[in-house]
């Protein structure tokens, strides 16, 4: 168990809309993998396919395989709850639950059966430390999470995701709703997570992708144009379309 993800010729349709057209790539364990591409190209759809959040949409069809440590996550017998425990997710908009900071972080562990107070205390502290939030909230764990600033809320959501001890962390534009200072903190945080987790991050901020990612993939109109080590993809893209996107010739956006 290490958190290595592989997509093999993966297709996804929303009704008639062919949103992913045969994606094949490998996310190596304990690296940060960035998904970039213009709006509507299928980044979020691919990300949400990795923890089966796309199951929630009605009328979704798929083809192909996604493997987590070699095991197909769409096999009939798979326990989606366990899969999502292993593959955590952080969303674009900070979404703390309307409860205390402590209860937010303890939510996942409690769901998965952790009851002992001391164990919960330990998990909450470790997760908040890993999310670089402990120092700011350690004296008000019982206060409502909605009283935190936007940046703090997002780090709380990261802590909440880490508290179930996942192997993979999926992040969908985690800083797009935040100010530059909070964004910087979360970027540092992502870099620090790399030693223990596999991170897949969607971002529209190319600077951010360059800063945090080891590998990157460029999506366009539901297809994977190219992927590989980030320095190569950003430094000397093989495909003309990637180059156009990176150099800001956004003619592809329309």
């Amino acid at each position: 168990m290490s958190g290595r993800l592989t997509a093999e010729n993966f297709h996804l349709w929303y009704g008639e809309n062919h949103a992913l057209k045969g994606i094949s790539l490998t996310v190596p364990e304990r690296e940060v993998f960035a998904l970039i591409g213009p709006s509507g190209c299928g980044k979020s759809t691919f990300l949400r396919s990795l923890n089966r959040m796309t199951d929630l949409v009605e009328g979704v069809k798929r083809k192909g395989r996604i493997l987590l440590d070699g095991q197909d996550i769409y096999l009939p017998g798979i326990d989606v709850t366990r899969l999502r425990k292993r593959v955590g997710m952080v969303f674009q908009k900070p979404s703390p639950f309307p409860m205390s900071i402590y209860d937010n972080v303890a939510y996942g562990p409690r769901i998965h059966g952790v009851k002992a107070r001391s164990q919960l205390d330990g998990l909450v502290e470790a997760s908040l430390r890993a999310a670089a939030l402990w120092g700011e909230v350690s004296d008000r764990l019982k206060k409502p999470a909605l009283g935190l600033s936007g940046g703090q809320q997002q780090r709380l959501c990261i802590a909440r995701a880490l508290a179930v001890q996942p192997e993979v962390l999926l992040m969908d534009e985690p800083t797009s709703a935040l100010d530059p200072l909070s964004t910087g903190k979360i970027e540092e945080l992502i870099l620090s997570l790399r030693s223990r987790y596999t991170v897949v991050i969607v971002t529209h901020n190319l600077g951010q992708a360059v800063k945090v990612s080891d590998q990157a993939a460029f999506f366009l109109d539901g297809t994977l144009v190219e992927w590989g080590p980030a320095p190569e993809l950003f430094g000397m893209p093989k495909d003309r379309r990637t180059e156009d996107y990176i150099t800001g010739r956004r003619s592809l956006d329309g």
Partner: peptide, 15 residues
């Protein structure tokens, strides 16, 4: 209730 809350809970493995 914002969709994010529902999704956040499900993504943590809650049913």
């Amino acid at each position: 209730v914002p969709r994010e809350l529902r999704e956040a809970s499900l993504a943590l493995g809650a049913d």
